[in-house]
Simulated assay, not measured.
Amino acid sequence: MAVAIRLTRQGSKDRPYYKIVVTDSRARRDGRFIEQVGSYDPMKEGINYTIDLAKVDSWISKGAQPSETVASIIDKTRKQG
């Protein structure tokens, strides 16, 4: 099973909100996921994301592949602290 770390869309029309989830790469974008590891709110100013780096590192060590957007969020979080 190929595992991906990617965004799943939540929120209403014109007010997107995303969860950062670990999921089977063949699953639908907003379908079933294995675990939620963070969130991303593009409508919010300043720091608009949260992520649990311990969980992300654990999944990456098991072979999960982050999407481009999630990889950039991970990099930003690592640079912060």
Score class of each variant (00 low, 15 high):
1 M>C: 11
2 A>E: 11
5 I>S: 03
6 R>D: 12
6 R>N: 08
8 T>Y: 07
8 T>H: 09
11 G>I: 00
12 S>A: 15
14 D>C: 02
14 D>Y: 14
15 R>E: 11
16 P>F: 01
17 Y>H: 02
18 Y>V: 12
18 Y>W: 12
19 K>W: 13
21 V>L: 10
22 V>C: 05
24 D>H: 05
24 D>V: 08
25 S>F: 11
25 S>K: 04
26 R>S: 14
29 R>H: 08
29 R>S: 09
32 R>A: 14
33 F>I: 09
34 I>M: 12
35 E>A: 00
36 Q>A: 15
36 Q>V: 12
36 Q>W: 09
37 V>Q: 00
38 G>L: 06
39 S>Y: 10
39 S>H: 11
40 Y>A: 02
41 D>C: 01
43 M>I: 08
43 M>E: 11
46 G>T: 02
47 I>A: 10
49 Y>L: 06
50 T>E: 15
50 T>S: 15
51 I>C: 09
53 L>M: 14
53 L>G: 10
55 K>M: 07
55 K>I: 04
56 V>G: 04
57 D>K: 00
59 W>S: 00
61 S>C: 04
62 K>M: 08
63 G>L: 01
64 A>N: 02
64 A>S: 13
65 Q>F: 02
66 P>M: 01
67 S>K: 00
69 T>E: 04
69 T>S: 12
69 T>G: 07
70 V>D: 03
71 A>V: 06
73 I>H: 04
73 I>M: 10
74 I>Q: 01
76 K>L: 15
77 T>G: 08
79 K>A: 15
81 G>Q: 13
